[in-house]
Nucleic acid binder design. Structure first.
Length: 261
DNA sequence: GCCATAGTACCGATTACTTCA
DNA sequence: CTTGAAGTAATCGGTACTATG
């Protein structure tokens, strides 16, 4: 999938800006069957230059070039080991590839590690607005000494992370909600069983007398227990019986649903 | 106005790499 | 020292939208 192991010749005009030519050309040399080939544009800060040479030549910046700027570092498997000591930005001091320098060689892609300073600034900007206008992107890239494309990618990944986190939180919430509903369901089933067993055991005579007086369901105001129709709909649906489907909506719950609170 | 095409931005999925336990 | 998991920069393929001829 990746365009690694490209050791071809490169003949190009100017530096290819990964951002401006966008994703269509991003796989560069190997990407022949890209859906679109785009017209190259040049940033203000990109100097046109002709390049002709083997593509795996790696340039490293001089020490003077690295010093003092919040430049991120690239590293590859063969290259400089970085260790992140607590509170220390080793990345700034070690291998310092000029940012904006295209990794046009065919070597395995090098992974940038943003410095804490850069991450903090990006984070601050993300808090303000989760997406960037082209101008903001350019400015931020200039400020951080990164390519606009890198800023863009960072924001994309950051949005993805935010979304993933949100999804996870929603998922947790739904799980809890589900658990509560299950509990409530169990409780209601139990309650129903109790009611059924009470109904099945013949009540004492005094209770029968009381029941005879209670012929109207307080919630739906229709007669229950086979009592006389009160002039309204006498359909079976309005009659409460053990065998019929429980009418939860009209049943006066003692305990309101506690789920999803 | 409709259509085809190019350019661009964004997204989801994935890869590749780093760091750390 | 090795290894697996987690984090994340970068890539890829796709969609949607806009501008232009």
């Amino acid at each position: 999938m990746d365009s690694d192991c490209n050791t071809g010749l490169l003949l190009g005009l100017g530096r290819v800006s990964g951002d401006d030519i966008n994703d269509s050309v991003r796989s560069g040399v190997a990407g022949v069957n890209k859906k679109k080939l785009q017209v190259l544009k040049f940033d203000d800060d990109i100097l046109p230059s002709l390049t002709l040479g083997l593509s795996f030549v790696v340039e490293t910046a001089t020490e003077e070039g690295c010093s003092g700027s919040p430049v991120s570092s690239f590293s590859n498997s063969s290259g400089f080991k970085r260790e992140r000591a607590a509170g220390e930005d080793v990345a700034e001091t070690e291998e310092c590839m000029k940012v904006g320098e295209e990794d046009e060689d065919g070597s395995p892609r090098k992974k940038l590690r943003l410095t804490k300073q850069q991450s903090a600034i990006l984070e601050d900007n993300f808090k303000e607005h989760s997406s960037l206008s082209p101008k903001q992107k350019q400015d931020l890239a200039r400020q951080l000494n990164l390519r606009p494309r890198q800023v863009e990618v960072w924001f994309q990944n950051r949005r993805a992370r935010t979304k993933l986190k949100q999804t996870e939180m929603d998922c947790e919430l739904l799980k809890k909600c589900c658990e509560k509903l299950k509990e409530e369901n169990t409780r209601l089933q139990k309650e129903l069983q109790e009611i059924k067993s009470l109904k099945l055991t013949p009540p004492p005579f005094c209770m029968q007398l009381q029941a005879a007086t209670l012929t109207v369901c307080p919630s739906c105001e229709s007669s229950i227990c086979g009592g006389g129709s009160s002039g309204g709909d006498a359909s079976p649906a309005n009659n409460f019986s053990i065998g019929s489907k429980p009418q939860f909506l009209k049943f006066p719950f003692n305990h309101p649903s506690a789920a999803c609170n």
